[in-house]
Nucleic acid binder design. Structure first.
Length: 427
RNA sequence: GUGGGCAUAGCUCAGCUGGUUAGAGCACCGGAUUGUGAUUCCGGGGGUCGGGGGUUCAAGUCCCCUUGUCCACCCCA
């Protein structure tokens, strides 16, 4: 066996018991929040037809897919959950009571360069609403995100959510610099998504690149970048067409979020457009207030996806929330809780002649729903006590020849040191 | 893909300009007289110094290659 084969592939993780308890703790919160919003949990295959993903995002993502061909089928590990959910909704659209509210907790894969907060395999909590065109759905989803953040112990203010509307930007630009060429809007979004990363000058360079898909003149490009600097909703509205529907929706969303009690932690930010091609309306992303990490989660409205995939049009909105960046944030803030093993009873037979009685006790207690570790080897009592202490057991049951002859086990409460006798076979 | 840092025990690391047999803390295992947890004390196991090649009387230390990892950029959710 080569040395590399003894390690997980790059970007993949092992979960040892300590890691797994954290993961389970986090997933529990994902599920608790999903259920508390009355969303239903669903799942789909982790392996899908590669076409499900390539169709939506174009050819570039093929390079990031874990994919292979087998028996003339081209299959891929899912890089995100939305296409699979869309597939499921489309398949049963006729019988589903809309709006559909579903959530998932799934593993996803994406072959790309690793950086902090990004691996090649991660778990993602997804919540989606299908069949609801109004921003009541967005508000509910954003409220769910804050609910999760509350649950994991992040104080309000540590995480903010930036919100924008692609629809508002599109309306504004069609009135002005893109009046003659609406088709340039999508590539324009791709360029301006980079504003934070490459800076205004580089964005203007790309927008004015005569070889590029956007091809604005410099004055127009500066105007666009200027629009992205807006952080005041009313000011953004003044640039939009009169009676803008997108603006009304944004305003309604913010007022709904006020009712949810999260208005303080959401920000209008005209530069948020998100990278995925299928977003059509409201887009949002959560980030740590210090701004040191990648986005914690992100989502938006994708009203055209169902139709793009070959179904009837169904409006939809959702978000994906990964486990990695949130985990980094909890580590940075020292907010991971102590997650001890939860063993109730440790059963210790001094010798093999007491094992049968030990098994009877263990079986009975397990039947009562207690978590019971039966000592399998033959350590000294001191060793067993240390172990009991370490795993956080409440009680240790000691069984020696004396106890057997009296039909009782000696039971010690670890916390108090108090010892008592319990019958081996109570009736 | 580009540039840089790091790689020594299970973990975190020390090891000065090359120089005896590579260390510490924690962890692990054992003991401190009969079947009882903490602290303490004593003892123990464990390292191809990431891998390969080179320079040298001598390499953990210097050089080259390689693999892994982290950071920044690039790219992208």
């Amino acid at each position: 066996m080569s040395k590399t084969a003894l390690r997980p592939p790059r970007g993949m993780r092992d979960f040892y018991p300590d890691d797994f308890r954290r993961r389970a703790w986090l997933f529990d919160h994902f599920r608790t929040v999903g259920q508390s919003f009355a969303f239903e949990e669903v799942d789909a295959p982790m392996l899908e037809h590669a076409e499900l993903f390539t169709r939506k995002a174009g050819e570039e993502i093929v390079d990031q897919l874990y994919h292979f061909e087998l028996h003339d089928r081209h299959l891929a590990l899912r890089p995100e959950m939305t296409p699979s959910i869309a597939r499921m909704v489309i398949a049963q659209a006729g019988s589903l009571r809309m709006p559909v509210r579903w959530f998932t907790v799934t593993q996803n894969w994406r072959y790309e360069r690793m950086t902090r907060g990004r691996k090649r395999e991660h778990f993602q909590w997804n919540m989606d609403v299908w069949g609801e065109p109004s921003v009541t759905a967005e508000a509910e989803l954003i409220a769910a995100i804050f609910s999760l953040l509350d649950q994991v112990g992040l104080p309000r203010g540590e995480v903010k959510i930036r919100i924008n509307s692609r629809a508002l930007l599109e309306e504004t630009l069609r009135k002005g610099v893109l009046a003659q060429r609406p088709e340039a809007f999508a590539p324009l979004c791709v360029v301006i998504d980079k504003l934070d990363k490459i800076g205004a000058d580089a964005v203007i360079d790309q927008l004015t690149d005569s070889e590029g898909a956007v091809g604005l003149d410099e004055t127009s490009a500066r105007e666009v970048v200027g629009l992205l600097q807006l952080r005041d909703l009313d000011e953004a509205a003044r640039h939009a067409p009169a009676g803008s529907h997108a603006f009304e929706e944004l305003k309604r969303l913010f007022s709904l979020l006020e009712a949810y009690g999260v208005r303080e932690d959401v920000i209008f930010d005209a530069s948020v457009v998100r990278g995925l091609a299928y977003y059509t309306g409201i887009v949002f992303e959560a980030f740590d207030a210090a701004g040191t990490l990648r986005a914690i989660c992100g989502g938006g409205r994708y009203d055209n996806l169902a139709q793009t995939l070959g179904g009837k049009p169904i409006p939809a909105v959702g978000f994906g929330f990964g486990d990695v960046v949130l985990g980094e944030l909890l580590s940075d803030k020292g907010l991971w809780p102590e997650l001890p093993r939860c063993v109730d009873d440790l059963i210790f037979p001094f010798g093999e002649s007491e094992r049968e009685a030990a098994i009877q006790i263990a079986t009975r207690l397990r039947g009562q729903g207690r978590r019971v570790e039966l000592i399998l080897d033959s350590p000294k009592l001191k060793r067993a006590m240390i172990d009991a202490n370490r795993i956080g057991a409440q009680r240790i049951w000691m069984l020696g020849p004396d106890e057997i002859s009296r039909g009782h086990a000696k039971v010690r409460e670890l916390a108090t040191g108090k010892e008592s006798e319990e019958p081996i076979n109570p009736d």
